[in-house]
Each structure stands twice: as structure tokens, then as C-alpha cells.
Design a binder for these strands. Structure first.
Lengths: 172, 172
DNA sequence: TCAAACTTTCAATAAAATTTGAAAGTATAT
DNA sequence: ATATACTTTCAAATTTTATTGAAAGTTTGA
């Protein structure tokens, strides 16, 4: 396969993956482009390569910078900004996990803890209220587990991450 | 908090979580409703509780059945169908992981293996082609790791899952 | 076989998310 | 101070996705 074709396919695949993850297709494509580009790219470069508007590039590179996946790079004597993607895939995974934990796990955990205590009421049997609290409690325990696991992985450095998961996959 | 209010909040929260995960809000809400309902519900029940149309209920319960998260329940002497949600939250997590692995991890892995071999070409330096293959190789290794981890967890039973993750969280 | 009680489909509609592009804003060099 | 070279914003347009509801299809019982 030719390099250009390979790049195109990777950008497309990464975009599809992103859209399954609540990340906009374009944001994932900008990320993919920066991931496989050796140097940093300017807004114009990205516009041209992905065929998207200036506003769209600006929006998406800033979102990627929020996630910590892309950094602004200033070159002496150049007025325009260049953007470069985090190339270490373990760091990429960690940053994504961190952001998703903050955005998704935390809100649902807040809801779970708020709704766990159901007040007695004349229209609801005690058994019904208890069953509800139990279901919520189970979900809460599981979410706690997921949250603590995510926190541990996020704190860990790359080597620890790799070796632990290797052990996990090949127990004994 | 009153039970009705608590239920409403859970359904809303679960729906929000779902939409961050590329699952439609309504599908997640139907799932949430069935998760906290003691018995099985009919199409009419779901329509009424979530205030959505018949076609929408039908579409979403069938999607949930595809994921294995909801089962059809037939009652002797009743013509209509009832639906009940998988209540075991570990099974829910496993089923979701399995489905996402199939839908998301597998396609990107196929793309990665296809694009790894970049042909030499007059317009592309050898160094450039090599750098690209290396980047893709790194992503591929990581995806393999994620895939094998997911496969292991999916195969494992609930107790194994719990105990391994407990160890993971409290190493030593 | 028919009618009743359902489920399923799908074209039209509505809602949500994304994208554009032009205008406004900002920083730098002269 | 002004021109230049950029970045940022945001209302409007577009595209994508989800929803509706009526019609068609299916199953069951009499």
C-alpha cells in the first residue's frame, strides 16, 4: 500500500472509532492526522489535508488541547501556530481515560449516591423501596470499582501499566 | 428522596452516560428503566413511563436484545410481550464490553494490520515510510493489549473478574 | 376464516450535532 | 499608528441521527 493511501485509511478508521466513543469524527480525525505526522502542522495544513474549514480546525485542535492530546508549538520567527500530537500511545490512552472518567464516571456516581436513600412514602411499599436501593447499591459498587481501577491506572506510569496488564493477561 | 423522583433521576443519568458512549440516549433510558423495574414491562408500560412512541420502544428493545441486555418474556395466556433487563451488573458490564470489542476494536485492528506495510514509492522517503510503520506498530501493540485484556475479562466469570480487579487496585 | 391484539416497518418529520465562513479580535513588525 | 498575519467567535446552513405514527404484517383464539 502507498503511504498516502495508508494515512487516509488510518484517519478514516480513527474517525470511525472516535464517533463510537462520543468524540466527534472530525476531532478524532485531526487527532489521527497529528498522530501520524512527523512534525507539527499549521491550521492551514490541517484544513488542506482533511478538507475542513478554518473554524472547524480551530475548534477541534482546541478541544484536543483540552484533552491534553495535542500541544501548541511556537516557532521563532513564525507568527502562526503549529500543533503536534502526543505520540506515546500509552499516554494517549491514559489521557483519554482520565478525561472520560471526569466527564462520565463522576456525574453518574454523583447521581447514584444522591438517589440511594429513598424515603418511605404511602404509595410505595417498603419492599419496593428496598429493592430499588439494592439495585442502585450494586451499580454503585461496580462504578466504584471501575473508578478506582481507572484512578490506579491513571496514576501509574507506563511501565507499571504495561507490566500489570501483561500479568493480568497471562496469569500464573 | 421519593422513589419516583429517584427513578426519574437514574433514568436521566443513565441516558446521559449512554450518549457519551455512542449509545442513543433513549436506548440507555429503556435499559435504565428495565434495570430498576422489578418485573418485566410491556411495550405500553415503556411507552408510558418514558413518553416515547411505540416504534421507538420496539426499535430500542430490539437493539437491547441484540446486545444481550434485555430478554423477551412471554406469559402464558398473555398475547403481548414483556421485556426484562439483565440485573446482574457484572454481566451487564461484560456484555457491553463484548459488544464494543466486536464493534470497535475489531474494525480498527483490521485497518491497522492492513496499513502497516507501506510500499516504497518515489515520492516518499524511506525514513518517512519507516516512521509511519513504527507509529502504526505502536498503536497496534497497544490495541492488541487492549483486545487481549478485554477477551480475558469477557471469558472470565464474575468472581474471577472481581478478585483480579481487586488485586489490581490494591497491589501488594 | 375472521377479527382482535398485538409487533414491525418505514417514509416523513423533528431534533441534535456539526460545519461553515465571514466578521471580529489579537498580536507583531515597521 | 497602521498594516499584516494570524486566531477566535458565532449565527446560519448543513448534515446526521433519532423519533413518530400510520400502515402493513403477524399471531392467536373463536
Amino acid at each position: 500500500m502507498q503511504l498516502e493511501e495508508a494515512k487516509r485509511r488510518f484517519i478514516e478508521g480513527w474517525g470511525t472509532l472516535g464517533s463510537a466513543w462520543g468524540v466527534s469524527r472530525t476531532m478524532a480525525q485531526v487527532h489521527a492526522l497529528l498522530l501520524i505526522s512527523a512534525g507539527a502542522l499549521s491550521t492551514e495544513d490541517i484544513m488542506e489535508q482533511l478538507q475542513i474549514s478554518r473554524g472547524n480546525v480551530n475548534l477541534n485542535v482546541r478541544a484536543l488541547m483540552d484533552w491534553g492530546l495535542v500541544r501548541k508549538e511556537l516557532r521563532p520567527g513564525e507568527r502562526r501556530e503549529f500543533f503536534s500530537g502526543e505520540k506515546d500511545i500509552h499516554k494517549v490512552a491514559t489521557l483519554i481515560m482520565k478525561e472520560r472518567r471526569r466527564r462520565e464516571l463522576e456525574p453518574i456516581m454523583r447521581v447514584l449516591s444522591e438517589i440511594k436513600q429513598v424515603e418511605p412514602s404511602p404509595t410505595v411499599s417498603e419492599a419496593e423501596a428496598k429493592a430499588f436501593s439494592e439495585t442502585i447499591g450494586n451499580i454503585q459498587n461496580f462504578a466504584d470499582l471501575a473508578d478506582r481501577t481507572a484512578a490506579t491506572i491513571i496514576k501509574a506510569d507506563e511501565n507499571w501499566f504495561l507490566s500489570t496488564f501483561m500479568k493480568l493477561m497471562r496469569p500464573g
